[in-house]
């Protein structure tokens, strides 16, 4: 089927089977590979995007359910990789292998929009993505730091 999607402010028309998850439409049909495949069952969060501003796991959203929705991916999070989260991520050397990190950043950016100064518990709840390298302590610290930057 032909589907029209609004991604990062732009309109895309793709020809995809209607049950194709958004994740694979982004990656295969549109070549937007910053959104990662990790588990396919909404467990790991590597595929996190924003759907109408809220964090969503794109492996669970069939493309047919996206009519009228506004999708933001890591490619559209900022103009020049200058979202405060992206900046503190680099400054603090947060990533290790890096594969899960775009999903982490998308989950964190959605959280900061809703809760400008999250507590540790709120971060743990909203950013429950899996990282096999063990970047968690730095991820949490970086989110706090970005929250400071955003509010100052």
């Amino acid at each position: 089927m032909s589907v029209t999607l609004k991604i990062n402010g732009q309109t895309h028309t793709v020809d995809a089977d209607e049950d194709t998850p958004l994740l694979w439409v982004l990656r295969d049909h549109l070549g937007m590979t910053g959104t990662k495949y990790g588990c396919g069952i909404a467990q790991c969060g590597a595929c996190t995007v924003h759907l109408d501003g809220a964090a969503a796991r794109s492996c669970q959203i069939p493309v047919s359910a996206l009519a009228g929705a506004e999708v933001t991916t890591i490619e559209g999070l900022s103009q020049n990789s200058d979202h405060p989260l992206q900046k503190v991520w680099v400054e603090n050397n947060v990533p290790q292998c890096g594969y899960c990190q775009t999903g982490m950043i998308m989950a964190a950016s959605a959280l900061l929009k809703q809760v400008p100064h999250p507590t540790d518990a709120e971060i743990d709840m909203a950013v429950d993505n899996i990282c096999r390298c063990g970047t968690y302590p730095r991820v949490r610290a970086a989110i706090h730091q970005a929250a400071e930057k955003l509010s100052s």
């Binding site: 590979t33 910053g34 495949y37 490619e75 999070l77 989260l85 991520w89 603090n92 947060v94």
Partner: peptide
Amino acid sequence: TPSKLQNPAVVNGTAVYGMD
């Protein structure tokens, strides 16, 4: 103690893994 050279590409999703 430099930040890893690939970090800028990692955080904007342009780092190319095998999957990409």
